[in-house]
Amino acid sequence: MKNRVSPQDLELLSAYLDGELSPRQKENLEQQLKTNTTLRQLLADLRLTRKILRSTPVRRLPRSFTLTEEMLRPKPLPFLFPVFSAASAISLILIFLSFFIRIAPSPAMAPAQRMLEQAAPMIAPLETATAAPLIYWGGLPTMPVEGLGGGGPPAPATMSDQREAEELTTKQIPGEAPDAPALPAETPIDVYAEPEAFLPPPEIAQPTAAPQPSATPLALQAAELPPPGGVPILGIPPTQEMGRMQYTPIATLTEEPPLRRNNILMIRLLLLSLALISGAGAITLYRKYRA
């Protein structure tokens, strides 16, 4: 009668041949071998196989493998090793430095910068639509404008200063005669006087463009003169400017443009790839020649 041999039986038979079984395992197996002819046949075959393997001739040595000083001398590393090492190190240093140094925008990036500046006011309505400030206008209605942001007409210290101020007033509004004489400098301005009326909240006008620097400051000042009936108070724009957004997006001033950020990120990624590839090359060469 023949039985199937399990992998466990095969392992036991193999170890039995080599004397690697415990006494108990050996006794159990020998009991099985007395009754199981399949196991006996397999044991005989394995024994013969082992005999054949052990009879395999030993090959003669082709030469001696003793070492000489010459063999132990390290082989010179190839030219590429220092190249790879330096490339990897420089790339890593550049990546590190890129987190601390802001690279000035190149002339080639200038058009992109201008485009961003022009596009920037488009986000202004979104940011200002929530709160329309109520602006209080006070002061004397016939007060001419003298000095921007000064809060009132300054008193000329000398005659020449007074003449200059008069000339400035007349020059600022060409073709339009002043309809009221300037008040004496000593006259205090009652900034706490009752207002003539509350002005409605200014409508927010769509910004047209980012503020452009002017080459003629005098003309600009004249353009900003308020009409009769309103006197500017420090920090409050004249009536012509009511509701008009004088807004420069903060993002364009402080943050890097997204395009530039992407470029820097791309450069970092390229440097990182270069560092990894050249580093792997250097390690491979070192292991090949020195390990």
Binding site: P7, L10, E11, L13, S14, A15, D18, D45, L46, L48, T49, R50, I52, L53
Partner: peptide, 9 residues
């Protein structure tokens, strides 16, 4: 070893 011997056989 056991499986290798069987294959060798």
């Amino acid at each position: 070893l056991a499986r290798a011997r069987l294959r060798m056989q």
